[in-house]
């Protein structure tokens, strides 16, 4: 690790100000950032710990819920105020240590192409609030590790809508147990959404063909065959064809489980 300064502001405004410093970086649960620092893959001048100012609560809201940007995966998994489908997503992230420290804000800011929350946020049509604005899920995810966040912008919370039926199916990459492929299917006021993580070289995305097919007939039979393997990730854990195949399998299973 290179050396850096550390501050823990008491308010969002102070945190935003602190992040103006050159090469300043926000610190959430540190589950992605600290390993990166330990490998000397990043060299921030100052770490701005959001733990002193960020809302970490979970509250039910209009049949859905509002989650503070600092809420840990464990607190979401354990909260009676979060819908069951969301609790299951949080509970399937990493291991207990990771869940006890990692935050929803950190996960969404990082936007790892194999992470779980992005699928749930995109597949449910949630909204991400920052210190400056509210961003719709469809506008937020912009590719592997790419988001709509501006430099120094802080995720303060996420609002998940009420869904009639929803389910997330995660197929573990055997080593990391991130998603080799994960599919979130959500049916709500806005129709049916299908979001896929782990598969695409451009990160989390919606599977339009499946959404169209399921809109009229929300049943496993309606799920189309595997999408094209073009642009699908291929690595030692699975070929592009295999991942594309899993997208269809997991979508069927999510529809079946969503009920």
């Amino acid at each position: 690790m290179y050396s850096f300064d550390y501050v823990k502001p008491g308010s969002i405004d102070e945190a935003v100000a602190a992040l103006q410093a050159e090469d300043a970086q926000a610190l959430g649960g540190g589950q992605t950032l600290i390993p990166t620092l330990r490998q000397r893959l990043a060299q921030p001048s100052v770490l701005v710990d959001l733990g002193g100012c960020l809302d970490a609560g979970v509250a039910s809201q209009d049949g859905g819920c509002r989650i503070g940007g600092g809420a840990t995966h464990a607190s979401v998994a354990a909260s009676a105020d979060a819908p069951k489908w969301l609790r299951a997503v949080a509970d399937g992230i990493g291991d207990p240590q990771v869940r006890n420290r990692g935050t929803i804000g950190g996960s969404l800011a990082n936007n790892d192409p194999a992470s779980d929350y992005p699928a749930a946020v995109l597949g449910s049509g949630a909204e991400i609030s920052t210190n400056a604005r509210t961003i719709a899920a469809d506008d937020y995810f912009q590719g592997m590790f790419e988001t709509a966040l501006n430099e120094g912008e802080i995720i303060t919370g996420v609002t998940f809508p009420k869904l009639e039926a929803a389910n997330y199916q995660k197929f573990d990459q055997p080593a990391s147990r991130f998603a080799l492929v994960g599919v979130f299917v959500g049916k709500g006021a806005g129709g049916v959404r299908v979001a896929v993580t782990g598969a695409s070289e451009s990160g989390v995305h919606r599977w339009a063909d499946a959404e169209a097919a399921l809109a009229g007939n929300f049943s496993t039979d309606a799920v189309p065959g595997a999408p094209s393997a073009d642009g699908v990730i291929s690595d030692l854990h699975g070929s592009a064809e295999y991942r594309a195949h899993l997208v269809a399998v997991l979508t069927r299973r999510a529809v079946a489980a969503a009920g």
């Binding site: 055997p174 080593a175 990391s176 991130f178 690595d235 030692l236 854990h237």
Partner: peptide, 10 residues
């Protein structure tokens, strides 16, 4: 390619 426990499955 399998240079860490994220890719080498123990």
């Amino acid at each position: 390619v399998s240079a860490s426990l994220m890719d080498y499955a123990m």
